[in-house]
C-alpha cells in the first residue's frame, strides 16, 4: 500500500520578473494513476508542468524521479529522464506523415553500411513500429502510416501526439489541455486514450480546464491556487462545486480531508 511517488516536486518557485508564477508548489505523482491539475488562469498549473518537463528552469525547489533529484535545463533533459509531454499546441509537423511524426527527432537508421555510412533511415521499420504503437492504444481509425498528419481530424492528430508520448515516455506522460481544441466526440476519444494509458500502468498528469472531463478520468485532482497546491481531492470525496470553491479560495480543505496518498 505504501507506494512511493514516481515524480515529486517540492516547494518549486518560479518567477518571471516581478510576477510570481509558482510560490512553493508541490506535486506527487504515483505509479499508474491519472493526476489532474486544475486551477484558474494564472494559478501556475502550466508553469508547474513546464518545470516538470524541462521547458522552464525553476528558481528554487526540487524535482525527484523515483526518489533521486533531477535538474532539467531543457526539454530534451526531461525527455531523456522518461518524461514525455503532449503540448496544447500539438507539436506535430502537418505535412509529414504519421510515422515520420512519431519518430520525429528520434529517427531510426537502417542497419549496416546503408545506415552508418549513407545515413539512410529505416522508413519501413518505423512505419511498422508506428502502426504497433498506434494499435497498442486502441486507435483503430488510423491505418495508413504514410498519411500526412494534416489530413487527419483534430482528435486523430491528438491521438498521434499521445501515441508518440506513450511510445517513448518511460516514466511519466504529461498532457497539457489535450482536449481544448477538440469537439465532444474527439474529446471522448482522447479520454479513452488516457484510460488506456492508465491500463498500461503509465502515470499521467492531465492539465485541463474541463471539469466534467477531469472528474471522469482523474484518480486524484490537484487544485492549484496562487502558485501553490491548494488541495488534492478525488472525484469520490469532492464534487465539481467543491473544486471550483477551492480554486477561487472560497473553500479550504484540511490536510486530513485531502487525498495525498495514492488511491489505486
Amino acid at each position: 500500500m505504501s507506494k512511493s511517488a514516481v515524480l515529486t516536486a517540492s516547494n518549486v518557485v518560479k518567477t518571471y520578473g516581478r510576477v510570481v508564477a509558482l510560490d512553493g508548489a508541490d506535486l506527487e505523482l504515483f505509479p499508474g494513476e491519472v493526476l489532474a491539475v486544475i486551477g484558474d488562469n494564472g494559478a501556475g498549473k502550466s508553469t508547474l508542468i513546464k518545470c516538470l518537463s524541462g521547458a522552464e528552469v525553476p528558481d528554487n525547489g526540487s524535482i525527484e524521479i523515483d526518489g533521486s533529484v533531477v535538474t532539467f535545463r531543457k526539454p530534451q533533459d526531461g525527455r531523456d529522464a522518461g518524461i514525455e509531454t503532449v503540448y496544447q499546441t500539438l507539436a506535430v509537423a502537418p505535412a509529414l506523415d504519421i510515422a515520420s511524426n512519431l519518430y520525429l527527432g528520434r529517427e531510426i537508421r537502417k542497419k549496416g553500411p546503408a545506415g552508418s555510412i549513407l545515413r539512410m533511415l529505416d522508413s519501413s521499420g518505423m512505419k511498422r513500429k508506428a502502426k504497433d504503437h498506434i494499435a497498442a492504444l486502441g486507435i483503430g481509425t488510423i491505418q495508413n502510416m504514410s498519411q500526412a498528419v494534416e489530413t487527419l481530424s483534430g482528435g486523430q492528430r491528438q491521438a498521434v501526439a499521445v501515441a508518440r508520448a506513450a511510445a517513448f515516455g518511460q516514466k511519466v506522460i504529461i498532457l497539457d489541455e489535450p482536449t481544448a481544441a477538440l469537439g465532444v466526440r474527439e474529446s471522448n476519444q482522447v479520454l479513452k486514450l488516457i484510460e488506456s494509458l492508465r491500463e498500461r500502468g503509465m502515470p499521467v498528469i492531465l492539465i485541463s480546464h474541463n471539469m466534467p472531463q477531469v472528474f471522469e478520468v482523474a484518480d486524484r485532482i490537484q487544485v492549484m491556487r496562487l502558485g501553490k497546491r491548494a488541495a488534492v481531492v478525488t472525484p469520490k470525496t469532492h464534487d465539481m462545486k467543491d473544486a471550483v470553491a477551492i480554486m477561487t479560495g472560497a473553500m479550504k480543505v484540511d490536510a486530513k480531508d485531502q487525498t495525498l496518498k495514492p488511491v489505486r
Binding site: A91, V92, A93, L96, L104, R109, L118, L121
Partner: peptide, 21 residues
C-alpha cells in the same frame, strides 16, 4: 536521411520541430 526529414519539419512548423527535440 534524418537530416532531410528535419529540414522538412523545420520548414513545416518550426515550433513543432523544436518541441519534438
Amino acid at each position: 536521411t534524418g537530416w532531410g526529414r528535419h529540414v522538412y519539419a523545420v520548414g513545416d512548423d518550426i515550433n513543432a520541430a523544436r518541441l519534438a527535440g
